[in-house]
Amino acid sequence: MLRYTVRRLGQLMLVVLALSVLLFAWLRALPGGPVSALLGDRATPESEAALRADLGLDQPIFLQYWRFVARALTGDFGTSTGVQRGTPALDVFLQRFPATLELAVLAILIAIAVGIPLGYLAARRRGRLLDNLSITWSLVGIAVPVFFLAFLLKWIFAVQLGWLPASGRQTGGIDATRVTGFYVLDGLLTQEWDAALDAFVHLLLPAIALSTIPFAVIFRITRAAVLDVLDEDYVRTARSKGLAGAVIRRRHVLRNAMLPVVTTIGLQTGALLSGAVLTERVFNIPGLGQALALGFERKDFPVLQVVILASAMTYVLVNLLVDLSYAAIDPRIRTR
């Protein structure tokens, strides 16, 4: 297991390295660039050239890349040129990361908490009302764009009904102490319950919007996996032993059915990151999604680089965790 983990971490480094090369080249091949984004109409050939030299963009690209890597290894990812001009790109990332992570974690928790039980129940009541209703719901969840759903939720529950806040991470009047940058967690740590609750309430609508696609996928995979497992010979063996229904379901069906589901959950973190870009925009949450959107608009290479590389790393790490928990469930992998 340890060797496996170490090998996977080695793979992670390779993935990030390869991605950094591609990303670096791709960003610089995009039309426009930080210089025209910064100078806009005021650009003169002289001012452009000066700014290019200032940003190091006049150097050959492999030299630029080399300098990027050398500095990155010391924790210096350059300075933001557009999102928060003058702030180190890494700080821009670190300030925004908690907002997105908080949102993504709540979204995936909702997707799991609803998707797995519902998928399980739908499989057991195959072809009946609950099954058909939840299949329809999951189809809608996949088909409706996150952006639209986010707007709809906001319009109904925030604007029309006024039950939940429409934007941001915390109500303005609340003067919460910051510890980690995760607002809900901060509130709990400092025992400022009002602040924690307020932050949580702010998260609800965006998290629900963001959870729909992962929910739909987790639901369908769970349902299909449970149906498969119910047909397995070992479930018949379990029944031939006269075991109680609850034991058969928990011990023999659910455990085996969770194997494909666990893998799916890992893959869904990718969907979460792209969904966060849209959700954060609708609910005006200062997270990574917003930084990405702004970064592309203003061609902020350092911020884009650090945000995208970190997101990719998160994705690969989450999937490593997923594989490890897969091994925890499946002895065929663990004891290989």
């Binding site: 397995e232 010979d233 070992y234 018949r236 063996t237 379990a238 029944r239 031939s240 032993k241 006269g242 075991l243 011990r251 023999h252 455990r255 085996n256 194997l259 469930i329 499946d330 002895p331 065929r332």
Partner: peptide, 21 residues
């Protein structure tokens, strides 16, 4: 009664035992 009064052994021992238990 199953498992207590009536027992059964199936054809395929590979698929008839639960792989993760």
């Amino acid at each position: 009664r199953r498992g207590r009064d009536l027992g059964m052994v199936f054809q395929d021992p590979l698929s008839s035992v639960n792989p993760v238990i």
